[in-house]
């Protein structure tokens, strides 16, 4: 299933800016692991619905580490491991707002 989701916050800047939209394809348990660098949307118990990049898959488990690209992003350490079960989906298309430099 596909969903359009709006990005808020700066943690993935300068690639994804607040106000951009992403097309997200639902991720179902049992699918193959996502590659590092894939941008994913997931539900976090403390921080709510987040968008981050996959950093690494945690060996031998159904968990991954995620990270932003901005220096002030929530650290992957603070986010802890993200279970694949909490994934809402992966970003397959980025709808950018007009950039001032464009």
């Amino acid at each position: 299933m596909l969903k359009i989701i709006k990005v808020t916050g700066n943690s993935l800047s300068p690639f994804f800016l607040p106000g951009d939209y992403v097309l997200v394809s639902s991720y179902r348990p049992g699918y193959k692991k996502l590659h590092a660098g894939t941008v994913v949307v997931f539900q976090h118990t403390e921080f709510g619905r987040l968008i981050k990049r996959v950093h690494t898959n945690f060996p031998g488990t159904e968990n991954m580490k995620v990270a932003g690209s901005h220096a002030n992003s929530i650290s992957s350490h603070k986010l802890d491991l993200i279970p694949y079960a909490d994934l809402i989906g992966k970003v397959i298309f980025h709808i950018k707002q007009p950039r001032t430099s464009d």
């Binding site: 969903k3 359009i4 989701i5 709006k6 990005v7 808020t8 916050g9 700066n10 943690s11 993935l12 800047s13 994804f16 607040p18 939209y21 992403v22 949307v41 921080f47 709510g48 619905r49 987040l50 968008i51 981050k52 932003g68 901005h70 002030n72 992003s73 929530i74 650290s75 603070k78 809402i88």
Partner: peptide
Amino acid sequence: PFLKAKAHCDVPC
């Protein structure tokens, strides 16, 4: 309105 996903900064800028 579409759903929103936060790419928020937790370390206060």
